[in-house]
């Protein structure tokens, strides 16, 4: 009997709460082209001039005036709250319009949303980060976090695969990481070309080559679904326990907060139950066709 009145009291308060569908306005403080189809924006809140706090793996809903709104993972340093960094690929209406934006332009932001990478789990363990294509962007905050807490973990390995040498994201940063003694960086491309002397082959082939203690490893994977499935299988084959694998998922999202329904994958909402999931929770949802 009591449900109705309780609900009334509760939602009378809720009705006062700010609208979670209403963005805050941000200005582009810096615009960088990364590769031919990827770019990075650094954003400042119009009111505060600052960025936002977030945890590695979270995303924002980014709104372009009159064009639309899409989820984009945050790819900056979680310790740096001066700007919000987003790297994305120009593939859809919104991202293509975004690519023509410049420093000083305004866009809307809601977030941060979603379940982050469980970075604290890596304490005292080897960390293997497996990224494919633009999937490096949501994992870069993990790298920043790990480098800032480097003494808390053992080996730190980045395995990165992408289509071709010109598609390599954050190239200069990768080169500076590769030069460090406390981080092993392996890059492989699907299509080599003249002048490329690095690895050619699917990113999964790097797993057998990289030095890490599989039984004591936590791995974070992000990239196309096929790539994550194949790499998860390889990591398990090498001896990484399946519950130490984490994947970040992508689905259509219209709201980012569990209202629109679009991002459902079986029982989960990618937006609020993810986008980061323990691999055992995803495994059975990744195998049926068109789920």
């Amino acid at each position: 009997m009591a449900n109705a009145p309780d609900l009334m009291a509760e939602s009378a308060v809720l009705a006062e709460a700010p609208d979670p569908m209403r963005p805050r306005l941000f200005r582009i403080a810096k615009f960088t082209h990364n590769t031919h189809d990827t770019f990075t924006v650094a954003l400042e809140d119009l009111e505060t001039g600052a960025g936002i706090g977030f945890r590695p793996g979270q995303f924002n809903m980014v709104y372009l005036y009159g064009v639309g709104e899409i989820p984009i993972s945050i790819s900056g340093d979680p310790q740096d709250r001066s700007v919000v960094i987003h790297t994305t690929r120009a593939v859809g209406t919104v991202t293509k319009a975004m690519r023509s934006m410049r420093k000083g332009d305004t866009l809307g932001l809601r977030g941060p949303y979603g379940v982050p990478w469980p970075v604290d789990r890596a304490r005292g363990r080897d960390v293997v980060i497996v990224a494919g294509g633009i999937g490096l962007a949501p994992l870069r905050p993990v790298l920043y976090h790990c480098l800032a807490h480097r003494n808390e973990m053992n080996k730190l390995v980045l395995l990165y695969g992408t289509r071709s040498p010109v598609d390599i994201l954050y190239r200069e940063e990768l080169e500076s990481w590769r030069a460090r003694f406390d981080l092993d960086v392996y890059v492989s491309v699907d299509r080599g070309m003249e002048g490329w002397h690095g690895n050619v082959g699917f990113v999964s082939t790097l797993i057998a080559k990289a030095p890490f203690d599989a039984g004591n490893t936590t791995a974070y994977l992000c990239g196309p679904e096929v790539m994550m499935r194949v790499c998860a299988t390889e990591l398990i084959k090498r001896g990484v326990p399946d519950h130490e694998l984490f994947v970040s998922m992508e689905r259509n999202m219209k709201c980012g907060i569990g209202f629109c329904g679009h991002c459902q994958l079986g029982p989960v909402f990618i937006c609020k139950d993810g986008p980061v999931f323990p691999y055992p929770r995803m495994r059975n949802l990744l195998s049926p066709w068109e789920l």
Binding site: V91, G133, R163, G201, P224, V226
Partner: peptide, 17 residues
């Protein structure tokens, strides 16, 4: 076998548009 498997995924061009 491993090379053929890896090659099929490589040919899928999974990162491409």
């Amino acid at each position: 076998t491993q090379r053929i498997e890896a090659l099929s995924f490589q040919l899928m061009d999974v990162y491409g548009e």
